[in-house]
Design a binder for these strands. Structure first.
Lengths: 173, 173
DNA sequence: AATACATAAGTGATTACTTACTCAACGGCA
DNA sequence: TGCCGTTGAGTAAGTAATCACTTATGTATT
């Protein structure tokens, strides 16, 4: 990985996350990266290839985060870690996550289904805690976490830590 | 309002909602509306004017929906109506709502804050019901409703009515 | 000499928008 | 009634700018 190649990746991530994939031209990426436009196509073949390279870079981030929850055996901890998911995202990773959420609205055939194993784990946790309708309870919490993440990444959420504690209390975890 | 002008509005709404504002060219809109491209600019001045006209068309939809909740005095009914919000959206209005949610991610300076009065009304409702931390309770419900709406409009929500009843039960409303 | 990195200057296609032009409908007036 | 002048709806054919992408070529390192 050369310096220039990395510059391209970082600039593209930042621009895609702030302006969107379609609204970001390859020439803008090249300019911000301090690189000729042709170099983008030498390294990534086309614009979509550049996007895929960016997503691949962050793939491990997603896997680690979810594995941490799915491999947890204590049900209360499964729920606690799910609730904490959006609140522990590091500032430096905001661009990557904002891009993920943006793409879900921008690209037509972008289905993630990375949440499926998480939904299973959560559902089991609620079942172990004798909660009625554990699948619905799980779905509900994941929809709430999605809403929180969206607000957070769009910068619409002020009393962040207050809400976090409130939720941990509510769920008694 | 001539037929052709209305055709432009309807075609643009459908295309913007499905492909996004940036990814939809004025020539595509004109073609789908069966109209010359220049007519778009005669009626709406520019592409952004076309978008604004579309949003203005649906403005009353939003106002009516929110007024129904904010003017409600019975606290339990305020909560019930808020929960039901995403579940009662008519199929024919999906394009309009999908566009609203899409724009929140696509346009940089798109702040709605149409939710503020709703958050106040909900907060008051929880207070009247003696709930501790009514503002956080209100925020939490609105974030959940946002998550549900997103999933619904993206077509990711299957057991819709089951979830609806589950939530009404949970909140005892 | 070979190879990978890098660029300048292109390509045709598409973008939002404009220009110059019809054509039908209308109201006032002799 | 008959004619004129204005106006708004509508279009075909442009415009310069930008799009994703290519080609030809140069340079540095091994």
């Amino acid at each position: 990985m050369t310096d220039k190649k990395e510059n391209i990746l970082l600039s593209a991530l930042q621009l895609f996350a702030s302006d969107g994939f379609n609204a970001t031209s390859t020439s803008k990426v090249a300019k911000q990266a301090g690189v000729s436009e042709g170099l983008i196509f030498r390294h990534f073949e086309n614009k979509e290839g550049l996007l895929k390279a960016i997503l691949a870079m962050g793939e491990s981030k997603i896997k680690d985060l979810f594995a941490e929850i799915v491999l947890e055996t204590e049900p209360k901890l499964v729920i606690r870690k799910t609730i904490s998911l959006p609140f522990q995202v590091k500032e430096e990773d905001y661009d990557f996550w904002r891009l993920q959420f943006k793409l879900k609205w921008e690209l037509k055939n972008y289905v993630s289904q990375k949440m499926d194993p998480l939904e299973m784990a959560l559902s089991n946790a609620f079942k172990k805690l004798q909660k009625p309708k554990p699948e619905l309870e799980s779905k509900k919490l994941l929809l709430l976490v999605d809403g929180i993440s969206s607000a957070l990444l769009k910068g619409d959420l002020k009393n962040k830590e207050e809400l976090h504690q409130f939720l941990l209390n509510k769920y008694e975890v």
